[in-house]
Design a protein around this nucleic acid. Sequence first.
DNA 1: CCAAACTTTCAGTAATTTCTGAAAGTTTAA
DNA 2: TTAAACTTTCAGAAATTACTGAAAGTTTGG
Lengths: 171, 171
Amino acid sequence: MKSEDFKEAKAEFIAQWGTLGSSWGINRTMAQIHAFLMLAVEPCDTNTLMDELKISRGNANSNLRDLVGWGLVRRVTYPGDRKEYFEAEKDVWTMFCTIARERKRREIEPALQLLRNSSSRSANSKDPEQKHFITQTAALAEFVETADLILNRVSRSEKSKVLPFLIKRFS
Amino acid sequence: MKSEDFKEAKAEFIAQWGTLGSSWGINRTMAQIHAFLMLAVEPCDTNTLMDELKISRGNANSNLRDLVGWGLVRRVTYPGDRKEYFEAEKDVWTMFCTIARERKRREIEPALQLLRNSSSRSANSKDPEQKHFITQTAALAEFVETADLILNRVSRSEKSKVLPFLIKRFS
DNA sequence: CCAAACTTTCAGTAATTTCTGAAAGTTTAA
DNA sequence: TTAAACTTTCAGAAATTACTGAAAGTTTGG
């Protein structure tokens, strides 16, 4: 791959990764910054990101803050250099666990609270609509609880890093 | 639960389910229609949806079309009645499998194509950036392939409907 | 202290997504 | 054939979400 082609391939990858992010509820720029940092060999500063991705300082700053909040990106500083640099977690399985934990905290738990709250109301047993409401929300709650349980087991496990191999071998 | 309280609880549930949908890349109205239909005992027509959710005919129509496209909602007709009615799949595990299959087709497959395409370029072995690009996209591709495999096994399995019980019992 | 180097904030703007409603299209009963 | 009953479409409007850039804030070396 010539250097020109490489640059193009990388840019294309970052652009498309951003588009994919959108369909998963992640904003385009955040996904692109993440892709850029995953592909970077060295930690990278804000100005470089602004140049490479053609984004404003404010945009870079706030999306980096969010990525750090998700635990997908770390701040790095070097002695004698006042700039902050940013570095992405690069191990794919670790990334997955981090995302799973955060989504759990931010989205699964609120959903579960809503479902439990709904399904634990005392139904008026005369009304089939009320009965169905309770049944249905209870079933959803149980499903989400199970999913949650699995995510916990899988993503907190000490053995997390071998799991993918095991899964692939035995399925 | 008094009838008043029930109506309120149901409306609250639908509203919050819509908000939750947003964080998963599903538009609010679509999530709300889905919630409404999951909670409905009888299939429901467009006008009822428009009234209950306070949405326009166009909005109802296009979100229903999408939900049918996802396989989460079915069209129902009664002999001697020209109206179309809509009914949601209510079994939670079946719903999960449907969503898994659709997301796979719509989002996982395009992602995989991008990753494979990127990781199969021949690297210039002199350039550590190029090496890292290949390594990293290959690792992502493998991860997504594994996830895909698992979703296939789980969601197409004949035994799908027992799996949740097994999982809960053994974890 | 000060000022240079750097980061954060946020009001205003731009882009994107979603929604409305009226008009066009389709189906069916008579 | 026709008209009533119903569904679909889509241009423009509204709502939401994301971005910019300049100003304010912070930190640090001297």
